[in-house]
Nucleic acid binder design. Sequence first.
DNA 1: AGGGAATTCCCGTTTTTCAGGGATTTTTCA
DNA 2: TGAAAAATCCCTGAAAAACGGGAATTCCCT
Lengths: 206, 206
Amino acid sequence: MATKLFIVDDHYMVIEGIHSILQNENSIEWMGHASNADSCLAFLKNQRPDVILMDISMPGMSGIELCKLVRENYPSIYIIGLSTFNQQSFIKKMMDVGASGYLLKNATRQELIFAINEVSKGKMYVCDEAASTLRFNEKLQLPVITRREKEVLEFIASGLTNNEIAKKLFISVSTVDSHRKNILVKFEAKNIASLVKTALQLKIIE
Amino acid sequence: MATKLFIVDDHYMVIEGIHSILQNENSIEWMGHASNADSCLAFLKNQRPDVILMDISMPGMSGIELCKLVRENYPSIYIIGLSTFNQQSFIKKMMDVGASGYLLKNATRQELIFAINEVSKGKMYVCDEAASTLRFNEKLQLPVITRREKEVLEFIASGLTNNEIAKKLFISVSTVDSHRKNILVKFEAKNIASLVKTALQLKIIE
DNA sequence: AGGGAATTCCCGTTTTTCAGGGATTTTTCA
DNA sequence: TGAAAAATCCCTGAAAAACGGGAATTCCCT
């Protein structure tokens, strides 16, 4: 039986490309596409694909949130993440949230078909580039900061002083200072400048 | 006479998508594709398309450099920039370097065909999103900093203090401080944290 | 129920940044 | 060759961050 495939991507050219690539592939049945998370969810109300190819960065709800939702509500559907960039945190988050595979948009026809078939059988498929990025990151691993620390970090990056942050969060300056110190340690940063830089580079803040 | 089109993009799916979209369009003749700047240049040694669709971010030479080269050596070829993101600086740089148009990868079939046809006649076509980004940026325009200021900014972002920077550059702390102050004014930042954040966001430093 | 993590708070000292001036010497380029 | 822009240097005082400690409470998970 052919694998029923659905695609969520906000790039028309990519959808068209995948459609065209899979046109003569009779092991895969094209169910359609959505260009954002909401239309995807609406589609799933009545239809049940076997595999969804899902772009990670989309306007509105991201592929990561969408993946989580779909996996929670329709555990029989397998998901393959799709993105342009080989971005450490994206890949990890996508896999954490239940994706079965990960492809970059420069994948070949062979790789695409192979990935869909593997995943439809319940296996995993992560493309080489993404896999090596994951391995690299396991060694280097991202600093883990708490919810509160992240809040403080965001305020710091937007230029607020400890005093201003304290007022915003209704806590004392000492507390803010403690958080700041802990964040600096976790990031192995010696001051705010390098902290903000690495936090942005690691996409921990935007 | 049909417009002869060539495509440079490192994403197979996008090439395939565009190919598929243009298959039944007889005003456009598909000449082929390259997945990087070098193969594009090699192709141009013997062939002469009318229009090149060119991805901006590619491994190796970027679309911006490639665009410049092509325009210098083959001024009869018109170029349309292509990218995933609506990124201020990219669009501007691409247009500065001689591109005739700019499309995002979520363009529709109609828009794609229209853009190619317009550009082939020597006109310009910039998609709405990109155009509004350009307008937005003209008003807001990027801070212009001097070479020295950029050097200092980079050291600041990597966590060096004024003192350390002074030693590295063999200048006095006062001078570094002056640069720092000027940079802060130019970025309208109130402190280092917000400075580093906006400098990174505007891609003025990496 | 117990333990660890998270969040909260405080102190004192040193270093660095911020904000406000002003001033001189090089470069650059029209 | 001359004016504008860039790069250099200096001062002072206040504000904030960095450093190095310690400690109490609350939350969460097993």
